[in-house]
Each structure stands twice: as structure tokens, then as C-alpha cells.
Design a protein around this nucleic acid. Structure first.
Lengths: 172, 172
DNA sequence: CCTCGCACGTTATAGAATAACATATCTTGA
DNA sequence: TCAAGATATGTTATTCTATAACGTGCGAGG
């Protein structure tokens, strides 16, 4: 079941999240796409919002709203909670970021624009968060729901466990 | 996909949660099993803990910790947050209740003792919460995780949407 | 009996989120 | 171009959620 040694083949985004890679390039690419997506929809990616997204992308992990707020206020933006919450809520609405319920935290979406159901893989050791493709999961969930007449609108799928690196470290 | 008119056949617990039924009998049955489970493990289902579980069972929906606390304190138990959190945490640890991350709330487990992966179906209209069988969902999730070398330990699967009754009401 | 562990209760504080209001900026159509 | 409405940003204050730290009582085992 935990059939390892199939790293790059299946879900490149999730695999990348758990391995060394060029954060800056990866962040830049996503940011460019985020701008395109926003423009296409007429949504305004203002300075605070854009900066909030950059902060999430740079961190490449889930961040609490107050953590983002600290960074924003240090850069001259507002110092009060709504500043961060509004920016983050905007990003989530636009599909540029996701909220991780289990952590009361937020993370940048790694493939904005593309329709997708995401599942989050949260490492309990190093706290990295990967966004995995979850279409089959969503299908299974909708089947279970449909069986009792429930109509799924939004799904929250989060797994807590060990990422490949931490797993190796633990085994050693 | 949303193939209705299959109410009692598939997942009786989840189906029951969304239809009229004898709450008292259903709660009594679950409570009896909870006691058996606790006894079998040597876990102490003390008065506060037992009462907290009863409160969840009677409500038959997700309740916030402070809501449970209000009821407990009205009945002579402690009035401070840790009283409720400790009781609820115990219930969750013992598998007698679940925490719904999305709602910051708790709900009684409808089949304690049996090993199961649960998915929660949360009605955004009436706020009912059903616990559905989620083994296939879990399998799909583990497949997605395994593909990137991630080892799932605990999974949070929650769907927000419309329950059968509210869906009918909305359609009318 | 006595003491060690667990449960219960308290006070105090930390952390997450939003309500309500004032000000500024952007857009748009007259 | 300018006024009006919508959108964004910022503030203060408050609410909701959760935990840390400490003292007390009780029950089981030496």
C-alpha cells in the first residue's frame, strides 16, 4: 500500500513539496499564474493581497493568520487581524490559497486556476504541507454521501502523518 | 450520481442521522456500548465524561465545547473551560466522540468500539451532522499519499453540503 | 495507614476570528 | 472632469476557542 519509490511519476506538485527544489522559481511561476487568473476574473490582486500570497509561497508551508499578519505589518501594512484575514479570505475565495482546518492555517495553492479537489498531507514532524490531487478521494466521498442523499458542495480532506524525509529519519 | 431513494439500504447510521428516529433509544444503545467499550479498556467513564457524552448524544448534532460546558455547569459540574475540554478530549481519545475540525465542534460517535474511518456530512442549512462510513475514501486517500511517499496516520474528511431534507426544502 | 496517581476544579492567559465603524481609493457614467 | 457608488484598507473593540499552571480530593496498592 505504501508503495514507495514512485516519486516524480504521479503527482509532481505534491512530490515537489516534500523534496528540495527551487522555491523562488516555483513561487514566481505560481505567482504569475495567480495574477493571470485574477486578471481574467476581474478580481483585484492588490498589494496586501499579493504580498500575502507571496508570503505563503515563500514559506511553502501552512501559516497562521497572525503569522502572516506579523510579516505584513512589518512591511508597512496594517497591524490588525482583519488586515490578514481579509487578504487570506480573498485568496481562498479566488482559489489562490487554501485553509487547513486542522491547523487553523493557510497555504498557497500550487496550481491556481485549474479545477481540482485538493487533499492536504500534513507532516506531524516537520510541519510541511503538500497539496495532493484528490479527485479519486472526492469521488469516493461523493459516493458515500450520495448513498444517503447528501449533496456535497465543499470537501475538507486532510491527512496527518509522516512525510518521506521524516519517515526515513524516524526509521533510522 | 446523486441517486436518491436508497435510504435505509446502504449506510444505516448516516441515513438515520438525516431522518426522524427515536433519539432516546438510539442514544441509550450507543451509551450502553460506550460503557462496555470503556470498561473493556479500563478507561474510567466518570460522571462528567458520561454526562458530556449523553449531552452530545441527546443533541444529535455537533456542539461547541462551550455549549457542552454550559449544560454541564448547569447540572452542577465545573464552570470553567478545561472541564468541558477534558471530558471531550477523553471521549475523542476513547473513540466515543469525534472532533469536527471545520466547525470547532464535537459529536458523539455512532458506533463506538468498531474500527472505522469516519467521514462527516455537515448540512449547511440545518447543521445536522452525519457520520458516514469512509473506508473507500480512506483507501483513495492513502493511495494518493502513498504515491508521494507520505504515510497517513489520521485523516480528517468532512463534507459541507445539503442533507436530503434541506435539499428538498430548497428545491421547493 | 500513607502515598502515589488520576480526575476534577479553579484562575489566568493565549490564540483565532469577526463585528462595527472611519477613511481612502478606484471606477464609471453624466 | 467630477460626483456617486462600490471596493479596499485601516482602526478599535469584542467574541469565541483552547490551554497552561496550580491546588484539592479520592481511590488503589504497598
Amino acid at each position: 500500500m505504501t508503495d514507495r519509490d514512485t516519486p516524480e511519476t504521479t503527482d509532481s506538485a505534491a512530490a515537489r513539496a516534500f523534496s528540495a527544489h527551487d522555491h523562488e522559481a516555483c513561487a514566481g511561476e505560481v505567482l504569475a499564474r495567480a495574477e493571470a487568473v485574477s486578471a481574467a476574473r476581474g478580481a483585484r490582486l492588490t498589494p496586501v493581497r499579493r504580498r500575502a500570497l507571496e508570503i505563503l509561497l515563500e514559506a511553502h508551508r501552512a501559516m497562521g493568520a497572525y503569522e502572516v499578519l506579523d510579516r505584513l505589518s512589518a512591511e508597512g501594512f496594517g497591524k490588525q487581524p482583519p488586515v490578514a484575514y481579509r487578504a487570506l479570505d480573498f485568496l481562498v475565495e479566488q482559489g489562490l490559497a487554501h485553509r487547513i482546518a486542522r491547523l487553523n492555517a493557510f497555504t498557497a495553492c500550487v496550481h491556481p486556476g485549474e479545477a481540482h479537489s485538493a487533499a492536504f498531507l500534513i507532516c506531524r514532524a516537520c510541519h510541511a504541507v503538500a497539496e495532493a490531487e484528490a479527485d479519486p478521494v472526492r469521488v469516493a466521498l461523493e459516493a458515500a454521501a450520495g448513498a444517503v442523499g447528501f449533496q456535497v458542495e465543499r470537501a475538507t480532506v486532510e491527512a496527518l502523518g509522516l512525510c518521506p524525509s521524516c519517515r526515513e529519519a524516524a526509521a533510522a
